[in-house]
């Protein structure tokens, strides 16, 4: 850093960083700002205490203050409006009583997003995430009348779908109520679920709501907050998925094509 040899002549100091390539820095950092001192003088004259003559000029201060207050109000409103409008969907879900947030648990088995062939086991019932089959379950408002493979359904959750499951044997009129929430809507699918502990369980990736009442208003609130928003892969589709209710085969590669119709 410091230069050996004879004292450097200060007149060679360049202001700014334009040139100086190859020349070692000649001064301490900050020493090359233009300084207004004449040789001999100390850096600054001691500033004489400024006596403000007379009273303060309150007029401009009041005007400026008022303007700042108004501006602050406008900004405040703007921030409030954008925060309200763009409130994250997870905040809306967090307000729904009874929704379990599995994302917060940081459970590696639930967070696992890898593709695995063959039957898989899941931490929760019904599953809300975890490794899954490479084929997703078609979720274009599909209403399945028999239980479907978890391995495919979890992949649909990853794509942003809401999966409504209901206890097998639920009364037909209650199933019809649920069906109304699903049919014609993409990123929705429903199916009966064996051994469900409540009448209805609604899940997106990492969140689950269970209830015994198909008319529970929390179901609709949950759907409208999380559908599509819950996607781990924005833009991933619900079409071209598996449309059967068959379990995944134990074969090396499931590869169940969606459109074999078998």
């Amino acid at each position: 850093m410091s230069t050996p040899g004879p004292e450097r002549v200060p007149s060679t100091v360049k202001v700014g960083k334009t040139t100086g390539q190859g020349k070692p820095p000649t001064g301490k950092p900050g020493a090359n700002r233009p300084n207004a001192t004449k040789p001999g003088g100390k850096g600054r004259k001691p500033i004489a205490p400024v006596k403000v003559a007379g009273g303060r000029n309150w007029g401009p201060i009041a005007v400026a203050g008022l303007v700042v207050v108004i501006a602050g109000g406008i900004i405040g409103y703007g921030v409030y409006a954008s925060v309200q409008g763009s409130r994250d969907w997870t905040d809306k879900v967090a307000e729904i009583q009874g929704v379990v947030n599995y994302r917060a648990q940081k459970n590696a088995l639930i967070d696992d997003r890898t593709h695995k062939a063959g039957p898989l086991t899941y931490v929760t019932s019904p599953p809300v995430g975890g490794a899954h089959n490479q084929t997703w379950q078609n979720c274009q408002g599909d209403v399945y009348t028999a239980p479907i493979a978890n391995e495919h359904a979890v992949h649909s959750l990853e794509h942003g779908a809401v999966w409504i499951t209901y206890k097998q044997g639920l009364a037909a009129d209650q199933v019809a109520t649920l069906q109304k929430k699903v049919e014609g809507k993409d990123y929705m699918l429903m199916s009966p679920y064996a051994g469900l502990d409540k009448n209805v369980s609604v899940q997106v990736w990492g969140y689950q709501l269970k209830t015994d009442d198909v008319n529970d208003s929390r179901i609709d609130t949950f759907i409208s907050a999380a559908r599509v928003k819950a996607s781990m892969e924005p833009g991933a589709a619900c079409s071209s998925g598996n449309t059967t209710s068959d379990p995944v085969s134990a074969a090396v590669s499931d590869g169940a094509s969606s459109d074999t119709g078998s």
């Binding site: 200060p10 100091v13 020493a31 090359n32 233009p34 207004a36 001192t37 004259k45 500033i47």
Partner: peptide
């Protein structure tokens, strides 16, 4: 400490 300052011209003194 500022022995190697440049001798650019003085700016008007402040606070006047």
């Amino acid at each position: 400490m500022s022995s190697d300052t440049t001798s650019l011209d003085a700016a008007p003194a402040s606070g006047e």
